[in-house]
């Protein structure tokens, strides 16, 4: 969802938003580590048997997505996506330190799966048919939704439809992101859309009045709202459904079903995973695990 040339500095800036949000209350202790299965048994020849045998797994994730997959100062990745990967790995008998996380920006997610460089991708990866032509999805494990953020004193914009009514209003998102694509039907004029590499740049432009609104997934916006000291607010309902799935090799039905079963069987670990990461942001509700889509 993020574009590809994210600089470290900017990443840290966004990260600080979340860290600050975290410092409010509970300890920053990561989710209680899921129990690693002792001696898992899998049918010979499946991906699961192969991974369990080799004892390691390579997972593609974002390194620059606060709350989902963000590299911290020690070089470890943290976030909800990372925790989901740990839950799946545990069921394969692979402990967290045996998971190899590799950075997969949005643009290369299909490529690394097709090329076999990773075993799965957990990277704010919206399930859609275009992507299904090249890979398969397990899940979804989370339903994100796009929303609109405006300055606190803005009463003119009440949701995405306000943009169509007044072509002078501008909205900001990130180059190459799904939200940037999905806001387009709500615009009267393509010139209303302003694109940056970073959501933090959108937030800057919102605070100095260069843009009237920022749009992306609600959890990301909540981070900015809680950091803004009351300068920003969310308006309107979520107007898209972004089911986040786990990307795996095309046609690996057995692995897909295994992941879905694993998630369904670990409800508690799932909730903890959320609350220790993306759920730390003020106003973020702990989600229910969505109904899995059929594996194909």
């Amino acid at each position: 969802m993020h574009s590809r040339f994210t600089t470290l500095a900017a990443t840290l800036a966004v990260a600080s938003v979340f860290l600050a949000a975290c410092s409010g209350g509970e300890s920053e202790e990561a989710a209680a580590e899921p129990t690693v299965a002792e001696v898992p048994e899998f049918e010979a020849g499946t991906t699961m048997a192969e991974l369990a045998e080799q004892g390691t797994i390579t997972v593609g994730t974002k390194f620059d997505q606060p709350g989902f997959g963000l590299e911290n100062l020690e070089g470890d990745v943290e976030g909800f996506d990372v925790e989901i990967a740990k839950i799946i790995a545990a069921e394969l008998g692979i402990s967290p330190e045996k998971i190899k996380f590799v950075q997969t920006p949005s643009a290369i997610r299909e490529e690394v799966i097709e090329g076999g460089e990773v075993d799965m991708v957990v990277a704010t990866y919206t399930i859609n048919d275009k992507r299904r032509e090249r890979i398969s999805f397990a899940g979804p494990y989370y339903e994100a939704g796009q929303q609109i953020m405006v300055a606190a004193d803005n009463d003119e914009i009440t949701g995405p439809d306000s943009l169509k009514e007044n072509p002078d209003l501008t909205v900001c998102s990130v180059t190459g992101s799904t939200p940037a694509e999905q806001i387009k039907p709500y615009l009267a004029d393509p010139g209303q859309l302003t694109l940056f590499d970073e959501y933090s740049q959108c937030a800057d432009s919102l605070s100095n009045g260069q843009v009237d609104a920022v749009t992306t997934d609600n959890v990301i916006l909540l981070g900015f709202v809680s950091e803004s000291d009351g300068d920003f607010k969310l308006v309107g309902e979520q107007f898209t459904e972004e089911p986040y799935g786990v990307g795996i090799a095309k046609g690996d039905v057995a692995f897909c079903e295994f992941i879905n079963e694993t998630l369904a069987a670990n409800e508690e670990a799932y909730a903890e995973a959320w609350e220790s990461t993306a759920g730390q942001v003020e106003g973020a509700e702990t989600p229910e695990l969505p109904e899995p889509q059929p594996c194909s």
Partner: peptide, 25 residues
């Protein structure tokens, strides 16, 4: 320049096609 709010130029079109629409890089 496309990365500074302009968007919609050739470079960002590439980013949109690969990241948001899932075409090969």
């Amino acid at each position: 320049v496309g990365a500074f709010g302009v968007g919609g130029d050739l470079w960002s079109t590439g980013a949109t096609l690969t990241s948001a629409r899932g075409y090969e890089t």
